[in-house]
């Protein structure tokens, strides 16, 4: 709104761009708390489901993939280790899909925030992401406890360090969510497309198999999945205690930052027309 010297203005805008999630942390945190509460609202066990959910899904995957399909695609793991291996892939995907699947509805479903109140719309994907993060982290904690209890504490460092892949993954998720939520205001088909894309992605990502098991011709394709690197890195850290490849991490982070920035720009530009279409 103000006309100021180009460079100073750019610096201010850049600082605002980097800091706004922190500036809005009070609001985002509060809304995320409410989001978590509302997810379990009306259920008898309430917040317990954040723990119960991951435990039950571990049980389901253990039965289905461990006993019925006896799927050992690309892994020679047995028993609990296999369940943990599978669980890391499935819950990472679930976290990703939860936010991305909701993304097309984030603006469209909050008409009041667009039209009626002064609301920092940019903050919405953070709220959704933080709404799903605790359950994901809790699931990972359960997996870690199970693994440490059977394999010992040797893998502990690898486990903790491997979680740094979550940082770029979250940036990536937010960036994609910005783009999807903004575009779907104009083109509602995005919601349908997204849900099909996600169901395709679960098979194009190393969730039920490991990247090594993919035929070489397709490894490039699967490697492009936004989940390939984090899932593989966390699995390596959790099961072998190995650290993520720094170069790979840097490359992934660079891609995530670019996505984040592009998503932000896309959202900021499209925001101007929200009121016309929601």
């Amino acid at each position: 709104m103000t006309i100021a010297g180009g460079r100073a203005a750019l610096r201010t805008r850049l600082r605002e761009f980097c800091l706004f999630p922190f500036r809005l942390r009070g609001l985002i945190g509060r809304l995320a708390m409410r989001e978590i509460a509302s997810r379990y609202k009306g259920s008898v066990l309430g917040i317990l489901w954040t723990v119960l959910g991951p435990v039950l899904s571990v049980a389901v995957y253990a039965v289905v993939f461990g006993m019925i399909f006896e799927s050992r695609v690309g892994t020679r793991l047995e028993g609990l280790a296999f369940v943990a291996w599978l669980f890391v892939g499935v819950s990472t995907f679930a976290f990703f899909a939860d936010v991305i699947g909701r993304a097309p509805h984030l603006v469209v479903g909050n008409v009041a925030y667009v039209k009626k109140v002064i609301f920092p719309l940019h903050a919405i994907p953070f709220v959704t992401m933080l709404g799903g993060l605790p359950q994901y982290l809790l699931g990972m904690l359960i997996a870690a406890i199970l693994l440490v209890s059977t394999a010992g504490t040797a893998v502990l460092t690898g486990m903790l360090v491997s979680l740094i892949v979550l940082l770029p993954m979250i940036l990536l998720i937010i960036g994609i969510a910005w783009a999807l939520s903004a575009v779907s205001v104009y083109i509602r088909d995005v919601a349908q497309l997204t849900s099909y894309a996600l169901s395709l992605l679960i098979f194009l990502s190393p969730v039920f198999y490991s990247l090594d098991a993919v035929p070489v011709a397709f490894q490039g394709l699967v490697g492009w999945s936004p989940l390939a690197f984090p899932v593989e890195a966390i699995r390596a850290g959790f099961l072998d205690g190995s650290l993520p490849d720094l170069l790979h991490w840097l490359r992934y982070t660079a891609g995530a930052v670019v996505t984040y920035v592009l998503g932000f720009v896309c959202f900021s530009r499209l925001k101007r027309g929200f009121a016309d279409f929601v």
């Binding site: 104009y186 083109i187 896309c266 530009r269 499209l270 027309g273 016309d276 279409f277």
Partner: peptide
């Protein structure tokens, strides 16, 4: 048209 508007805004 929304698609046109989308493009113009973008």
């Amino acid at each position: 048209h929304p698609v046109r508007a989308l493009w113009e805004h973008l």
